[in-house]
Design a protein around this nucleic acid. Structure first.
Lengths: 182, 182
DNA sequence: TAGTCTTTTCAGTTATTATTGAAAGGAATG
DNA sequence: CATTCCTTTCAATAATAACTGAAAAGACTA
């Protein structure tokens, strides 16, 4: 039995979203589960997902948990049914915000810490180096500083964009274009 | 023999940058090679890189080629030496721009194509569905449209930011903050 | 509390991706 | 044009990441 147009469209979307996720360091299956819940819109239970994506119960359980932890989907229940159902946030902007905040939280702090760590180690020990190496240490320090400044700028911009919310996104977009054109 | 402060700082930076890359869908080694060339600043040959990262010649060759293709490093030569040397772009903003442009080029087009494809398939076949499914098809189409709009907005913003160049980045940052505060 | 239904966990397996090393291919040198 | 030095390629291998399935744990019911 062949799929109808709706099923085909959904499947195509799910597959592509999975591939996208994979190139961005998110497991293909996790992205597919999310895509499926998003495009379906309805609450789905673990068995639905296992069946539609042809994956095992354990796999489904793991990936659903991760998505809940990320805040991209939430658990829900259908009355008269003991099973757990899952439902995705359907607001595109909100999804973007959730993903971005999460990655920022996990990644920006640690990298800044490392950069600062490198700098302070260098600062303490540079005087102990021979002259030629001292110059290199200074160059290295400058690069670390550049990188820190850059990450900071990006972080501030991101913060502003994220806290603006979807209503202001058009305005923001316009403001950026204006600034750039000048 | 133990490493001095400069070596330690460089190694820490390289390792962390590699980990970062890995979580962003870039192979750890490729990120490490790039980090090494960046933090060193000097031209390095394949053997330097093999030795410093403890990797094989083939591996070094492959990853260097990729980095050249991405435009993050370039080949260079030292007079009196037959070997090829590699040197990294040292401008943080420029590096960001290169990476972002490259990923955008590779990824944004294809995903937009898929979304459009899904929509037009749906549009053609929706009338053939039974009534209840037609409603679902309309809902699905709306989500695809939302996603397209969102990607488009993001793309426009990104384009503006990228074409602004590093000199304007402070101004841009300020403009964003202003817009958001209002 | 025992019985039933559901979810989670995780050791073992499979699939994917990255790496090696040696052979082949190029390029400069004399 | 033969030699040397260097780079690339790629089949084989190793390392990593993802997935399975069955057992254990948890939760609701009567």
């Amino acid at each position: 039995m062949s799929a109808d147009a709706l099923e085909r469209a959904e499947q195509t979307f799910v597959r592509r979203w999975g591939e996208m996720g994979a190139t961005w360091g998110i497991s293909r299956t996790m992205a597919e589960v999310h895509a499926l819940l998003f495009i379906t819109g309805d609450p789905l239970c673990t068995d639905d997902i296992m069946q539609m994506l042809q994956i095992s119960r354990g796999n489904a359980s793991m990936n659903l948990r991760q998505l809940v932890n990320w805040g991209l989907i939430r658990r829900t229940h259908l009355r008269g049914d003991r099973k757990e159902y899952f439902i995705s946030d359907l607001d595109t902007w909100q999804m973007f915000e959730t993903i971005t905040r999460e990655r920022r939280r996990r990644e920006v702090g640690p990298i800044i810490d490392t950069l600062k760590q490198c700098r302070s180690d260098l600062a303490g020990d540079t005087p102990k180096l021979e002259k030629e190496r001292q110059q290199k240490a200074v160059d290295c320090d400058k690069k670390l500083q550049d990188m820190l400044d850059f990450i900071n700028t990006l972080d501030v911009m991101l913060d502003a964009v994220l806290s603006s919310g979807s209503e202001q996104i058009g305005m923001l977009s316009a403001a950026i274009s204006n600034t750039v054109k000048r």
